[in-house]
């Protein structure tokens, strides 16, 4: 009798993992397990046959997002019922085991705006797992691409120029290169100071998030002058686009260039008057990462405006130059009083 029950349970699990069976909601057993399902639909995070989220999977936004080749990014979170995320005094969120962070990448001009890629960050009991899925051409489902892939993508940039790029879906290891903290995978985007509390999100987090006593001030929006000065917005941009590697426990720890929101923006480790370390061609013949008052002789700008893999920063996930982001950083450096250089 016991055996029969086990067999039935197993059959039920198999069925619930199959794409053909309509799902009531996310498959928590699969989420909590240690497998890497071949098809995205197996998780039950999306409605069958497309990229519509199922009920209970909640979209969220960020004040300042990571630039990803001008992709439109749809972010969402799943937390199992009855679980809770605690936010510490610095705004870091301890998501419970069973959480899934979902990010889908699309471009208005690409396959009628259907997503090209969806990345999952799954909190399993032995840590976070990062899985990249590439959507099939018909947009019905997406397939695991642990080895990464290049996808030709065309779009019109915000300045009206048409661009055709080779978009790089990261491989599983590359996911970790950006998401690494002391060698383990951690989420980057959803920090309390960067989360946008839209109405739907408010309803979602209500009662599920434990907040610290202190208020967490929101990060400025990089492109909204109402939200902060040029310097504040530039620092928000650097925090979101660079600091996941450029921190003492990140993939660029050896560079000594640390660009977190919490780092001292006057310090040499923030790049001001900092000479290149292991930069190679990234120095562009310049002496300093940031030369106050002189963006044209600041190789931080040179690297952001390059597409050459031996020069470009970030090293991963950038097949287009973020002109508007570089413009903001240029303004910030141009405004810095000269002579701050040592």
């Amino acid at each position: 009798m016991k055996r029969l029950a086990a067999a039935l349970a197993a059959a039920w699990l198999c069925a619930s993992g199959g794409a053909a069976v309509p799902l009531a909601g996310p498959d928590q057993t699969l989420i909590d397990g240690d497998t890497m399902p071949r098809k995205l639909s197996e998780f039950g995070l999306f409605r069958a046959g497309g990229a519509q989220l199922v009920d209970g999977v909640t979209p969220y936004g960020l004040h300042t997002p990571l630039f990803s080749d001008y992709a439109d990014k749809a972010r969402a979170i799943w937390m199992p019922a009855g679980t809770r995320a605690d936010v510490d005094g610095e705004g870091r969120i301890a998501f419970p085991v069973g959480t899934v962070l979902i990010k889908s990448f699309s471009w208005a001009g690409q396959n009628q705006g259907k997503p090209v890629e969806t990345r999952l960050l799954i909190h399993r009991k032995d840590g976070w797992a990062a899985l990249p899925y590439v959507w099939d051409a018909d947009g019905h489902d997406a397939t695991l691409a642990i080895g990464g892939r290049r996808v030709p993508v065309s779009f019109t940039g915000p300045d009206g120029t048409k661009q055709a790029i080779s978009y790089a879906v990261p491989n599983k290891n590359q996911c970790k290169e950006c998401h690494a903290e002391a060698g383990a995978i951690v989420p980057i985007g959803p920090k309390a100071r960067n989360l946008v509390f839209a109405p739907k999100w408010k309803a979602f987090e209500s009662g599920r998030f434990g907040w610290p006593a202190n208020r967490i001030a929101p990060l400025p929006r990089w492109d909204d002058p109402e939200s902060g000065s040029v310097a504040q917005r530039a620092r928000a941009y650097l925090d979101v686009n660079c600091a996941h590697c450029h921190n003492p426990k990140g993939s660029a720890s050896n560079s000594g260039l640390f660009l977190r929101w919490t780092d001292d923006p006057a310090g040499v480790n923030y790049g001001i008057g900092k000479r290149p370390t292991a930069a190679g061609r990234g120095s562009g013949g310049m002496a300093f990462a940031i030369k106050p008052g002189d963006p044209d002789h600041s190789f931080l700008i040179y690297r952001l405006e390059s597409l050459d893999p031996g020069i470009a920063m970030p090293e991963l996930g950038r097949g287009a130059v973020h002109k508007e982001g570089a413009k903001l950083l240029r303004e910030w450096i141009a405004q810095m009083p000269e002579g701050k250089n040592n």
Binding site: P276, G280, G284, F299
Partner: peptide
């Protein structure tokens, strides 16, 4: 002859 990009040590 030194062919390193300038700026590097």
């Amino acid at each position: 002859p030194n062919f390193a990009p300038k700026g590097n040590i």
